[in-house]
């Protein structure tokens, strides 16, 4: 193995923060993401969590599965509560604690959108992390604006979702915040280095983590990471960072600028029960969606 192929190990003191035992489903991507987060911030973080899977995953009163601070908050309020926490810490002179709004796609792309936009526009000194499992999983797999086209959900039960996925990272780039990145639980080192870079940036930092959900996407729980990787390898989910007015495509996605290097989207779709009844027309439209995302990326590079 050559030197360049050796990946740096994650500091798995992460287990000191993400304690063994939580209420997540088998194969849940969320604890994976939390471990990476913990590897970066340790105990000195305050997670502000609106209604989402994580509200349940971290356990029931009086215990919690994270050895960090958690404030559970109303669905649409995470970015606002996090703003308040950050301002209070600033007024109290506490500077070594990271405030992280940690929300799902429903709490971000839908009900929390105005609140996220407000905090972004004010450039609050917080992390806003959306773990994107592409539907309202905690309430029972209902469609969100972040659900991809063609996906079965319990509120698109026969026809599948008719619209494309809302691109929240793009919305945040339009806010001109200091840092925006996409990430995936399939690439923890990539997420780790993004968090490391962003933590030194003052102001609003947005990271969207693609998080395949076995329960909602209808796949075998052993495939969580495989599907996360396929989302990237097919070019469906593009890993990048955006700061200083420039988009930097991340390592795992970089070769895929060349569309011939991308795996066929079918490889990603066929492992997921939610795409079981997808038609060739929808597959075509997903391919067009992927292509248009890549052209947008190329424009910003």
């Amino acid at each position: 193995m050559s030197e360049s192929q050796v990946k740096p190990p994650l500091p798995y003191s992460a287990r000191d923060v993400v304690l063994p035992g939580d209420a997540s489903c088998h194969g849940c991507p969320i604890p994976i993401a939390l471990k990476v987060l913990s590897a970066v911030f340790g105990e000195k973080m305050i997670l502000v969590i609106p209604a989402c899977c994580t509200s349940v995953i971290v356990g029931t009163y009086p215990g919690q599965s994270l050895k960090a601070s958690i404030i559970h908050v109303p669905f649409a309020s995470a970015a606002a509560v996090a703003s308040g926490v950050a301002q209070a810490l600033k007024m109290r002179g506490i500077s070594d604690v990271q405030v992280v709004a940690w929300a799902g796609d429903g709490g971000t792309a839908d009900i929390g959108m105005a609140t996220v936009s407000g905090a972004a526009e004010r450039n609050e000194d917080i992390f806003y992390i959306m773990y994107d499992n592409e539907a309202y999983m905690n309430t029972g797999i209902q469609r969100s604006s972040s659900t991809p086209r063609g996906a079965w959900t319990t509120t698109t039960p026969i026809l599948g979702k008719g619209e494309n996925k809302k691109d929240v990272a793009k919305v945040l780039i339009a806010h001109n915040v200091p840092y925006v990145a996409t990430a995936s639980i399939g690439y923890p080192h990539d997420l780790y280095s993004k968090l490391q870079r962003a933590k030194n940036i003052h102001g609003f930092k947005y990271i969207q983590i693609h998080a395949p959900c076995p329960t909602g996407w209808r796949f075998d729980p052993k495939y969580t990471v495989k599907i996360a990787k396929l989302a990237v390898e097919t070019g469906f989910w593009i890993l990048y960072e955006y700061y200083n007015g420039k988009l930097i495509i991340s390592g795992p996605s970089r070769p895929l600028l060349d569309s011939s290097k991308r795996k066929p989207i079918e490889e990603y779709l066929k492992l997921q029960g939610r795409f079981r009844t997808i038609t060739p027309e929808i597959i075509n439209s997903i391919n067009e969606y992927i292509e248009s995302n890549w052209s947008w990326i190329k424009k910003l590079m």
Binding site: I46, V48, I71, V73, P74, A76, S77, A79, A80, V81, A82, S83, G84, V85, A86, Q87, A88, L89, R92, A114, T115, S117, G118, E121
Partner: peptide, 16 residues
């Protein structure tokens, strides 16, 4: 950007 956020921000600050 809204009253919902006004009290939410106050809540967060007060908790902290």
């Amino acid at each position: 950007e809204s009253e919902h956020s006004a009290l939410a921000a106050c809540f967060g600050a007060a908790v902290a």
